[in-house]
Amino acid sequence: MLREAGFTVDTAASGEEALSRMPLFDPDVVTLDVTMPGMDGLSCLARIMVEHPKPVVMVSSLTGEGAVETLEALRLGAVEAVQKPAAGSIGRIGGELVETVRAAASSRPRRVRGLRERLRLARARIAGEDFAMSRPAAAAAVPESVETGVVLVGVSTGGPSTLEDILPLLPASFPWPVVVAQHMPPAFTATLARRLDEMCALSVVEASRATVLEPGMVCIARGGADLELARRGGRLQAVCVPASPDRPWHPSADRLVMSAMRLLPPDRLVGVLLTGMGNDGAASMADLHARGGRTIAEAEESAVVFGMPQELIKRGGAGIVLPSDRIAGQLIRWLAPAGRRAG
């Protein structure tokens, strides 16, 4: 499939063979399965990221244990995962595989640090650096009410490790719920939510059903579907809806943000657009910014793929541009009640 798309391809039947051929072939992108004879995919990936850092796309089964292992691969430095079909020909994923490999070829492998070290450095930045304190002219002060607002996050390629730079730094007292549209296959987002829940002070859940949004929580959109905000019984909820056929990426960040703008004024919304290919989320967050809402675009220096945040910046819709490890600090300074901010 990759040769037919114009790529020059070399193959290896095992992790050991792949490592031996890497210096000779010097690929722009590596595709890697989790389950292989001899050396497993995670061990091979770890060696690649140390010895021959390259963008790696995991092509594997994302059900059960496979989803857990593939999430770990993304944490180790893989830029994206493509789900092999449970039945039938692998040719069914040809289009997705080609598109993902093309995007990975222009990505930058992240420097892999342990989570504890990344959090330590980010907390030091929060404590020691200035952040933008001004609000858009059209926005009022954040109301101290039961329903304050929502932080809306759009993210794609490179997302799991980028979310780890942000969500674990938000304190349990963070007053607005956070809703995340992470482009992922349907079998994967529940595992992502569980992993993030283990490392965050906030409660992290997958929106597999209608979920009431409350302070102190992060809601991850279910993979393979879209997520919209709705008001039922006077309370804001995140509602899983069928994927819109006229949108190429799911869960759709644009659809999430547009639904939020129908329910809440701009001063009660913050849009955050992170790493990812394409332009999902750029149009809606630019609209939010134009209406007086606050928006953050991830800086090129930390983005695995700069496509989505770059598009927001090009549209003039980024209120602030920050590397991923400074975004939590900015949200805290905007929204956390005085005296209860993380240091």
Rank of each mutant, 00 (worst) to 15 (best):
R3T: 12
E4P: 00
V9K: 15
T11I: 10
S14C: 04
L24E: 12
L24N: 06
P27I: 08
P27F: 14
D28C: 08
L32F: 04
V34G: 01
V34R: 01
M36S: 06
M36N: 06
M36W: 02
G38A: 11
L45E: 03
P55Q: 10
S61K: 03
T70C: 13
A73G: 15
L74S: 08
A78Q: 06
V79M: 13
G94E: 14
V98W: 01
S106Q: 10
S107P: 05
S107V: 04
P109V: 07
L115W: 11
R116Y: 02
L119N: 03
A127D: 07
F131S: 09
M133T: 08
P136M: 12
A137G: 06
A140W: 00
P143Y: 03
E147M: 10
E147I: 07
T148Y: 03
G159T: 00
L163K: 03
I166A: 00
F174D: 02
V179L: 08
H183N: 10
P185L: 08
T189C: 14
L192F: 13
V204I: 10
A207Q: 06
T211I: 03
L229M: 09
Q237K: 05
A238V: 02
V239S: 06
S244T: 07
D246F: 03
D254M: 07
R255M: 09
M261K: 02
R268E: 00
L273Y: 07
G281C: 09
G281L: 10
G292M: 07
V304E: 12
V305I: 15
K314A: 15
Q330G: 09
